[in-house]
Amino acid sequence: MADAALQLKARSAFDGLLVPGGPKDAGIVVTERKDLQIATVIARSSGFAEAIKTAYGIALPSGPKRIVVHEITLLGTGPRAWFALRAGERPLASDLEQSLGEHAAVADQSDGYGVLRVSGAKVRALLAKGVPIDLHPRAFAADDVAVTVCSHIGIMLWRSDADSSFDIAMFRSLCGSFWSWLSESAEEFGLRVEAE
């Protein structure tokens, strides 16, 4: 096939599901985070913490916490597992592989997940309809991360910077079902979709 004829257009996970628009005073505002590079990182050896320190100059927190370093957001998703994100085009998985070498198993997952940013005055009331964990500010602090199940769908959830704003990642194939739950649950609060 001639080069010119071959146009491989990328489609985001929520392509065709999210249609921008909605009331100005909506209690819920949703944006798809489309431009993320994503990788899973699994520590393979006890040298992992040191490798991170060498590469990024930080000590990784233990537990389900978020830390941001060199524009990379690292989310603690398991005792040895992290979910890494970085905005932009720059490949993340290969960078991490290079930095961490044999201390980590890195897999590119940039296409494997859909990520939504959900915010608005009613965001906690909305998430209470599916997320079985306590998101009250006293219980879920700014750097907290949770891997959990919402409406039978596995999600990763973390606070973005604002108090009433959460990022939620889920498997790409489940974005349609997640959206059907979210949009139905948000209807009573008013829902606005914004482009990134």
């Binding site: 537990g63 389900p64 398991g78 005792p79 079985p132 964990i133 949770a146 891997v147 959990t148 199940v149």
Partner: peptide, 9 residues
């Protein structure tokens, strides 16, 4: 690791 979680997980 995660804290107290519901049986469903």
């Amino acid at each position: 690791f995660c804290g107290v979680r519901d049986l469903t997980e």
